[in-house]
């Protein structure tokens, strides 16, 4: 079992690394999105300072959303998922490897770079740690919630727009709590963190399970 897990994980990571589009796409999109905020505010430093945290969260959301499209697409299209199913490879391994890789290449770089961008958007230094933690809990949740929806839309013709449309309502609680948690971090209250952790711990059990169900249905 672990052998299979490592094997599939290494293949997935390899797929991300050598397919340059896939690996840098999310991060590149994040950077581009970040660029929009200072430009669209007309040079108002004060306003930028106020919305710096929100803008980083919004960009993280969109970067995640954009890269959801390619999550299962390749394996579905060329029939690899079908072969996994026929050869009775447990789907939870596949789903978890996909989840880990997706987070590793979309959430993780954003988390690492977030302090830099906070300063870049002239946010205050106190929020660095708060933002770091909240993104650390929030971005895996984005990936987790996106997974079943990405699996749902497999095989539909206009997949991209539908995916965006369906996913954003489900991302809303995360972004609300995420942004709030950063704001309350500086005043020493962690209630939103606990809430996010609670959602994450529930989600990491149920959402992959739903994803497996949906993937199996989508194969036919």
């Amino acid at each position: 079992m672990t052998r299979l897990f490592i094997l599939l994980l290494s293949r997935e990571v390899k797929g991300y690394l050598f397919n340059t589009n896939k690996s840098w796409f999310a991060l590149g999109f994040f950077l581009l999105c970040i660029l929009i905020f200072p430009l669209s505010l007309g040079g108002s430093e004060d306003l930028l300072k106020k919305i710096s945290i929100s803008s980083i969260w919004i960009c993280a959301l969109f970067a995640n959303l954009i890269s959801l499209e390619s999550l299962f697409k390749e394996d579905y299209k060329n029939g690899t998922l079908l072969q996994y199913h026929i050869n009775r490879i447990p789907f939870f391994i596949i789903v978890f490897t996909k989840f880990i890789c997706h987070w590793l290449f979309t959430g993780f770089p954003i988390i690492i770079l977030s302090p830099l961008f906070l300063i870049f958007l002239s946010g205050s230094y106190e929020n660095i740690l708060g933002l770091f933690y909240s993104l650390l809990i929030g971005t895996p949740l984005f990936s987790l919630i996106g997974m079943p929806i990405s699996a749902l839309t497999l095989g539909s013709a206009a997949r991209g727009p539908i995916l965006v449309f369906l996913t954003i309502p489900f991302f809303l609680p995360i972004i609300i709590f995420g942004v709030l948690s950063v704001n309350s971090f500086s005043s020493g209250s962690f209630s939103e963190y606990y809430l996010l952790c609670a959602i994450l711990s529930i989600g990491i059990i149920f959402l992959p399970y739903i994803t497996i169900k949906i993937l199996k249905e989508s194969l036919e």
Partner: peptide
């Protein structure tokens, strides 16, 4: 028939999500 399960699961997930959204917006 492929969309059947898609639809059912989506409404299921949406149903669970609605109270969470209500709660989160309330909080906010």
């Amino acid at each position: 028939s492929k969309g059947n399960y898609t639809f059912a699961y989506l409404s299921l997930v949406g149903g669970f999500n609605l109270p969470i959204i209500k709660f989160s917006v309330d909080w906010w």
